[in-house]
Computed example of a mutant assay.
Amino acid sequence: MPDNLSFEPKTATIDSGGTVTWTNESDIRHTVTAYEDETPDEAAYFASGGFESERAARNRVTEGLLASGEKYEHTFDQPGTYRYFCIPHESSGMVGTVRVE
Rank of each mutant, 00 (worst) to 15 (best):
I14R: 10
T75A: 01
M1N: 13
I87P: 02
N24Q: 01
Y35N: 09
A34T: 06
R60I: 10
F76P: 08
A57M: 07
G17S: 14
E70V: 11
T11D: 12
T21Y: 03
E54T: 04
T39R: 12
G93V: 01
T81R: 12
Y35V: 04
M1C: 12
T13G: 12
S16H: 14
V95D: 03
A57T: 00
Y45F: 15
A57D: 05
E70A: 10
V95Y: 06
E38F: 03
S16E: 15
S6I: 06
R29D: 11
F51P: 10
T21W: 02
M1G: 14
G18V: 09
I28P: 01
M1L: 08
N59Q: 13
S26T: 06
R58P: 05
F76E: 08
A56D: 13
V20N: 03
K71F: 02
K10T: 13
E38N: 11
V100E: 03
D77W: 12
D3Y: 09
F7Y: 14
F51A: 12
H89N: 10
D41M: 14
S16Q: 15
S68Y: 02
E63D: 15
Q78F: 07
R58C: 05
D41R: 15
S48L: 04
T81F: 02
A67Q: 10
N59W: 08
E54C: 10
P79G: 03
R99L: 02
E73A: 00
G80R: 08
Y35S: 09
I28R: 04
E70L: 01
D15C: 06
V61Q: 14
R99V: 09
G49C: 13
G64R: 04
T19D: 02
E38A: 09
Y45S: 11
G18M: 09
R60K: 14
Y45D: 10
R55S: 15
S26K: 01
F76H: 06
L5F: 14
R58M: 05
G17T: 15
K10H: 12
F46C: 10
P40M: 11
A56G: 13
D27W: 07
K71T: 14
S6D: 08
T33H: 07
G80T: 08
D3T: 10
Y72M: 08
Y45M: 12
G49A: 12
S92W: 11
P79M: 06
V20Q: 01
A56K: 12
I14Q: 04
A43M: 13
D27P: 03
T39D: 11
E38H: 13
L5Q: 15
G17V: 14
A43V: 15
G17Q: 12
A12D: 04
G69I: 00
V98A: 03
G96V: 00
S48I: 05
N24I: 02
